[in-house]
Design a binder for these strands. Structure first.
Length: 576
RNA sequence: GGACCCGUAGCUCAGCUGGAUAGAGCGUUGCCCUCCGAAGGCAAAGGUCGCGCGUUCGAAUCGCGCCGGGUCCGCCA
């Protein structure tokens, strides 16, 4: 039984026993058989639902089947006790030797413990993808953290992961950016700007001070040669320069959060090298694009609505509610068309599985994109929608007002509470649930701050290990029998399974909760030693017991560290 | 009008893809530092899992219908 994931290993044993009792069960029945940790230690270490799942298809009584499983599994060397319980559960108590053997296994594997076997499967996680028109604001934060940690988690689970950022540098937004930069350019030259601004359709859209140095840089480089010139002389150059500077700024913001993408894909490059046509051609070849007229949205009645023939994608064939336009009335492509092409490009790079991490305001966009991917490749697109984050201080929502200058930019938040707290707390909720981000809790040095609590547990581990002498030779772990010690081991062996399950569900927040529970177990173990000196880790005259406990503490530190690594949170050595 | 997300202790939230007596923190009450980090731990109290039907051995979890909160709904990205 070499599998790091003991639950998977035991599940294998259960299936063998089940096959002997009820031969020839269908694969989809067997797939529902699971071996899970028990909630109550009185139920042993693990439980399986095998008898209840198999009872009906095998035409047997679940309790009888459970009794049969107990008989077979009891003979297994790694199982100390098996018993039937409740409606047909089989509870398993592992042999102490097997349980204790997990400690040296963790110590040898170090942070690789819990690493899933390579799935030889590429997966692409796209996240952040904020428009390159300014610094990141707090609204981008959750997606950045969730996407980055999810990518780490998938990598931990054995996928070949690409972290990707889609740069929307082709649309009207970046043209507006270029025009705003032009105003700053004129200002840098001490030239009047009112006359120019009056000619811009939307006016000065990006008035933030962050564009001032960009305008100055362009003035320094080009002097006044673009002043008073028509757009077609300078627009392209200004756009390219500004986008490049914006992306530098965004990369800096992300770096401050510990987020680093492998690939930055340019929408403009895709458009200019014909990628949009290539992507759409795939759909045209399948007869999925046609000219038609959409019904008006029911009940809403836009006042300027009029029936119009346009190019549509047959997304309703793939689960969407209605077909979606790919071209605007002026003939240019919609954002959706470009995005179809972009996803086609990702698929074409050899990624069968795609994940987009988006803000909740893109919710209405999910079905059509999933339909497009299905149509393009038959592949799977998971969309993680991150709901709104409300920043709270002293029980009051913090106003996100540019004029008031409070907490607009992501950088403000990081400066206030630090990157570790931002990352951990963003993962203390499911992505699809709205959350309150409590600034007071984020900086608290108490249990109510999960980051602190987990880092403190790690610091305590390190504190013990610093005080201890490294044991030499084989360590005998059989002295670890106290309830708190056993609970600790039971938690540790859950880690490989948690990685697998959280990755499968695409739910990085589960790692944060696991770490919190793990830290809680460790603090309880620590305090058991405070109440009962015989349970302290370091025992002067008992080298065997001491070595065993040091091993347990070291294993705990390893799992804490590898979990924190998935979240991108720093495992601190001490908390002075 | 329609689509998607959410509704669990007074508050903020978990609940391992349908399992056993629904959990944690904060808040309330009571305990534990001559001793490896008390920045911690232990215990008590607190629940019609929004409401109602249904599916089945079994539902907080799945389906349908309501109620409440959020996001969105052709030529923005």
């Amino acid at each position: 039984m070499q599998d790091e994931n003991l639950f998977a290993a035991l599940r294998g044993e259960v299936l063998i026993a089940l096959e002997a009792l009820a031969p020839g069960l269908a694969p989809d029945v067997l797939a529902r058989v699971e071996v899970t940790p028990t909630k109550d230690p009185a139920h042993g270490d693990m439980a399986t639902n095998a008898a209840m799942i198999a009872a009906k298809p095998a035409s047997k009584n679940p309790r009888e089947l459970a009794a049969g499983l107990v008989e077979k599994l009891s003979t297994h060397s790694s199982i100390a006790k098996a018993e039937a319980a409740g409606p047909g559960f089989v509870n398993l108590t592992l042999s102490p030797a097997l349980l204790l053997a997990q400690i040296p296994l963790i110590l040898n594997a170090q942070e690789a413990y819990g690493q899933g076997v390579s799935k030889s499967r590429k997966i692409n996680v796209e996240y952040v993808s904020a428009n390159p028109t300014g610094p990141l604001h707090v609204g981008h934060c959750r997606g950045a953290v969730v996407g980055d940690s999810l990518a780490n988690l998938l990598s931990k689970a054995g996928y070949d992961v690409t972290k990707e950022y889609y740069v929307n540098d082709a649309g009207a937004q970046v043209l507006a950016l270029a025009r705003s930069v032009y105003v700053r350019y004129l200002e840098a030259l001490k030239l009047p700007t009112e006359a120019y601004i009056a000619t811009v359709p939307g006016g000065m859209q990006y008035g933030g001070g962050y564009l001032v140095p960009i305008g100055e840089a362009l003035a320094a480089r080009h002097g006044d040669k673009f002043a008073g010139q028509p757009e077609d002389i300078w627009l392209d150059e200004f756009r390219t320069f500004a986008v490049s500077r914006m992306m530098d700024m965004i990369r800096d913001d992300l770096a401050a959060l510990g987020v680093r993408h492998d690939v930055f894909s340019s929408e403009r490059a895709l458009v200019e090298n014909g990628g949009v046509e290539r992507g759409l051609q795939v759909l045209r070849d399948k007869g999925l694009i046609y000219r038609g007229i959409l019904e008006p949205p029911k009940g809403k009645k836009p006042e300027d609505w009029e029936p119009r023939e346009q190019e549509l994608f047959r997304s309703s064939d793939f689960g969407d509610d209605v077909d979606r336009p790919i071209a605007k009335s002026d003939g240019s492509y919609t954002y959706f068309a470009n995005d179809i092409a972009y996803h086609a490009d990702k698929v074409g790079r050899g990624c069968p599985d795609l994940i987009d991490v988006l803000g909740a305001d893109h919710g209405g966009y999910v079905k059509r994109m999933q339909a497009a991917v299905k149509a393009l490749s038959g592949g799977r697109l998971d969309v993680i929608l991150c709901q709104i984050v409300k920043v709270m201080k002293n029980g009051e929502p913090v106003k996100m007002s540019k004029r008031a200058g409070t907490f607009v930019e992501l950088r403000d938040l990081i400066d206030e509470v630090g990157p570790d707290a931002v990352r951990f707390l963003m993962l203390m909720r499911k992505a699809d649930a709205q959350m309150d981000f409590d600034l007071n809790a984020a900086v608290a040095q108490t249990r109510e701050n999960p980051v602190f609590y987990v880092q403190y547990a790690h610091a305590r581990c390190r504190s013990v290990l610093r005080a201890a002498q490294a044991p030499s030779g084989e360590v005998d772990f059989s002295s670890l029998t106290a309830p708190e010690e056993v609970a600790m081991i039971r938690r540790l062996i859950t880690w490989p399974r948690l990685v697998e399950q959280a990755a499968e569900a695409r739910e990085p927040h589960r790692v944060a909760f696991f770490l919190y529970d793990l830290a809680s177990d460790f603090h309880a173990l620590w305090n058991a030693g405070r109440d009962n000196t015989a349970l302290r880790f370091l025992q002067e005259d008992k080298p065997v017991e001491t070595a065993a406990r040091i091993g347990l503490v070291a294993a705990t530190a390893i799992v804490l560290r590898s979990g924190l690594a998935v979240l991108g949170v720093n495992p601190v050595e001490e908390m002075r």
